[in-house]
Write a protein that binds this DNA or RNA. Structure first.
Lengths: 110, 110
DNA sequence: ACAGTATTTAACAAGAAAGCTAATTATTAG
DNA sequence: CTAATAATTAGCTTTCTTGTTAAATACTGT
C-alpha cells in the first residue's frame, strides 16, 4: 500500500476549512453534520472536504451502532507517519537555519 | 511587524515547484535563472513563484556586488519561527495520536 | 548610444478548486 | 408504505492558480 504523496497531504492541509476539521476531530470524533454546523459552508461542500481528507488518508469514517445514516469521522494517526518524517526533516533544517541566523545577528552586534 | 498567516505559508509550501525552490535554497543562495534551469517552467512562471515565497516571507532577495541585474535569493529563517511553533504543536499532537494508536493496536493483539 | 542579459510585469488561456442548489442514496421511524 | 433525516453525488458557476508569450525595466559591456 503506497504512502500518500506529501503534495497531496500538504495540499489538503493548506485549506483553512480542512484544518478546522482536523482541529475539531483532534478533540473527538464528529459526524459530518456537526462539522457543517461549525462552519458557514453547506453540507455538500463539507462532504467534498471530507472526501479529500479521506482520500489522502488523514481521516476515516466509522458507522455508529444504532443509526447507519450517521458517519462519524475520526483522525487516522497512521497516515501522519510519513508527514511527520518530512516535518522532522524540515524542522531540523529550520532549526539549523535559525541557529545560523542567531550567530549571524550576534556577530553583527559584537 | 505582524506574522504572516499560517494559511499563506502552508499554501505556499503546498506547491511542488515552490518546495523545490525551498530545497534548492536550503543548500545555497541562487539566482532566479538558476532556479528556472532546475525546473521545466518558464522564467515568468518562476518569477511569480518567487514573488509568492517573498510575500509570505519565506525567502528574500539580495543584490550582488558587480551585477545589479542579478537577484540572489535566499531563505529567511526568521520567517520560519511561527511556522515552527505550529509544527511543534501539530507534531506533538500527532505523536500523542500515534501513541494512542499503538496502544490500541497492542490491545487488539492481546 | 546600442546590443545583450537578467528578471519582472502584462495580458490572456486552460484547468483546478470551492461554493451553491437540486437530486440521489440509504436508513430510520411512524 | 411513507415521510423525514444524514450524507453524498451531480451539474453548474465563479474564482483562483498556473502556465504561456510578449513587452517592459533595469543594468552591463562595447
Amino acid at each position: 500500500m503506497p504512502a500518500i504523496s506529501l503534495d497531496t497531504t500538504l495540499m489538503a492541509l493548506a485549506d483553512p476549512t480542512r484544518r478546522l476539521v482536523i482541529n475539531a476531530l483532534h478533540q473527538q470524533p464528529r459526524r459530518a453534520g456537526e462539522l457543517v454546523a461549525m462552519t458557514s459552508i453547506s453540507a455538500p461542500a463539507m462532504s467534498r472536504h471530507l472526501k479529500i481528507l479521506r482520500t489522502c488518508g488523514l481521516i476515516a469514517e466509522q458507522t455508529v451502532e444504532h443509526d447507519a445514516r450517521v458517519r462519524l469521522y475520526h483522525l487516522r494517526p497512521e497516515a501522519f507517519v510519513d508527514l511527520q518524517g518530512w516535518l522532522d526533516e524540515v524542522q531540523s533544517f529550520w532549526a539549523d537555519q535559525l541557529d545560523a541566523f542567531k550567530v549571524h545577528v550576534e556577530g553583527k552586534h559584537k
